[in-house]
């Protein structure tokens, strides 16, 4: 019986106020459920996501982190999402060195209208982190 209990990961989602957070609201508006595992932290811009927040999330018990930004060219602050992308690339290298699978920290893009895409990304993220299992930090 124990084997059939699904692992429920804890995931932190950093969403920007203008696009992806609005996309998450849109997902609510169109009803229909998605996995509950992602705890949403609203920031004004994905450019505010500090790699330290991601490390801190892992340290405080998160099994995964998903950063959702505006699509390129749509950033409310013009290029904050480009900074997010740069920082995510850098962070991915660092996470690899720490032995943290890259699937545990994902960056993607959701517009204010993409409620369905938001649901799909959350489901995919939860699925992939569930497969990886709980994060074991060997710091």
């Amino acid at each position: 019986m124990k084997d059939t209990v699904r692992f429920e990961p804890k995931i932190i989602g950093f969403l920007c106020h203008w696009c992806s957070y609005a996309g998450a609201d849109k997902a609510g508006g169109i009803q229909g459920s998605y996995p509950h595992n992602v705890k949403i932290i609203r920031l004004m811009c994905s450019g505010r996501v500090d790699p330290l927040f991601v490390l801190s999330a892992f340290e405080k018990g998160a099994d995964g982190v998903i950063i959702l930004a505006c699509h390129h060219g749509d950033c409310h602050y013009k290029e904050g999402n480009c900074r997010a992308l740069q920082r995510h690339s850098m962070l991915s290298l660092m996470l690899a060195q720490l032995g943290i699978e890259k699937e545990r920290c994902r960056l993607d893009y959701v517009s204010a209208g993409e409620g369905e895409k938001f649901k799909r990304l959350i489901s995919e993220m939860v699925e992939s982190v569930s497969i990886l299992g709980a994060l074991q930090l060997n710091l």
């Binding site: 920031l43 811009c45 450019g47 505010r48 996501v49 602050y77 900074r83």
Partner: peptide
């Protein structure tokens, strides 16, 4: 300042 916070992180 528009308050995006990009500089804070940088």
């Amino acid at each position: 300042c528009h308050g995006c916070g990009t500089c804070v992180t940088a």
